[in-house]
Amino acid sequence: MQSDAETPSSSLHPAAGDALLVVDLQRDFLPGGALAVADGNAVVPVLNRYIDLFSAARLPRVFSRDWHPANHVSFAERGGPWPPHCIAETTGASFAPGLNVPPDAYIVSKATGAEADAYSAFQGTDLAGWLRHRGCRRVFVGGLATDYCVRETVLDALALGFEAVLLTDAVRAVEVEPGDGRRALEAMIVRGARPATLQAIAGEQA
């Protein structure tokens, strides 16, 4: 039998116990960046609406970011799958232009060591403890990219006992292989993530 904390809420209305988690919305993942996600910049205005919603409710807003050293193991020059991207303190690692990052937002830097990669915002960070300390039981997740860092963040959230709402209008996929984005969405939903859109959430609050 599930406890109240483990039972998914029927309401999508952000309330006490909820947090917004914006995943890796950084310049290098936008069109023109070192590891661009097609149409990645389209999620910025949508996520700004979510940020405003959670700010108005005085709920936690968390922003994760890749924060790699220049010799990171995931880079092609070291045999990894990706071009150099999101190198700490560079323009490419900065948050997307126009993204409203509140001054009291919590910023989680991941994959900060040269020898270990991390797609999930929970991997190698204090995010789970930070959320639990603030009584958060559910995370609303959007950002880039659906088939990598968003997927792994959502799956880790579920595995750690959090409920997860996947903001399907605020994610985009890399699509290294055709269909990767769709498969990632299916994997998250099968594991228990609840898909939702701003229209659904705003409609519920009306």
Results as ranks from 00 to 15, higher is better:
3 S>C: 09
7 T>P: 08
7 T>S: 13
8 P>W: 09
10 S>E: 14
10 S>Y: 11
11 S>C: 10
12 L>V: 01
16 A>W: 09
17 G>I: 04
19 A>M: 04
19 A>Q: 05
20 L>K: 00
20 L>N: 03
21 L>W: 01
22 V>L: 06
22 V>K: 01
24 D>K: 03
24 D>S: 06
27 R>M: 09
27 R>L: 08
28 D>C: 07
33 G>A: 11
33 G>H: 05
34 A>R: 15
35 L>Q: 07
37 V>K: 02
37 V>Q: 04
41 N>A: 15
42 A>W: 08
43 V>T: 14
44 V>L: 01
44 V>Q: 01
45 P>D: 06
46 V>N: 04
51 I>S: 10
51 I>W: 11
54 F>T: 01
55 S>Q: 14
55 S>Y: 12
60 P>T: 09
62 V>E: 03
65 R>K: 15
65 R>Y: 11
66 D>E: 10
67 W>K: 02
72 H>N: 04
73 V>S: 14
74 S>V: 04
77 E>L: 12
78 R>G: 12
81 P>C: 14
82 W>A: 08
82 W>T: 05
83 P>F: 12
83 P>M: 06
84 P>F: 09
84 P>M: 09
87 I>P: 00
89 E>G: 09
92 G>W: 13
92 G>I: 03
95 F>N: 06
95 F>I: 03
97 P>Y: 09
98 G>D: 04
98 G>C: 07
99 L>S: 04
102 P>S: 11
104 D>P: 00
106 Y>Q: 11
107 I>H: 07
108 V>Y: 09
110 K>T: 02
111 A>P: 00
113 G>Q: 15
116 A>F: 13
116 A>S: 14
117 D>M: 07
119 Y>G: 01
120 S>E: 00
120 S>F: 00
121 A>Q: 02
121 A>Y: 00
121 A>L: 04
122 F>E: 02
123 Q>P: 00
125 T>A: 07
129 G>D: 15
131 L>Y: 12
133 H>W: 10
137 R>Q: 15
138 R>D: 06
142 G>H: 03
142 G>M: 00
143 G>V: 03
143 G>M: 02
147 D>L: 06
147 D>Y: 06
148 Y>A: 04
150 V>M: 02
153 T>R: 01
154 V>W: 02
154 V>T: 00
155 L>T: 05
156 D>L: 03
156 D>A: 13
158 L>H: 08
159 A>P: 02
160 L>K: 10
160 L>M: 13
164 A>V: 02
166 L>Q: 04
169 D>I: 01
172 R>F: 08
172 R>C: 05
173 A>M: 07
176 V>L: 14
178 P>H: 09
181 G>A: 11
182 R>G: 14
187 A>Y: 03
188 M>N: 10
188 M>W: 10
188 M>Y: 10
191 R>D: 13
193 A>W: 03
195 P>I: 01
195 P>V: 07
196 A>W: 08
197 T>F: 13
203 G>R: 08
203 G>W: 02
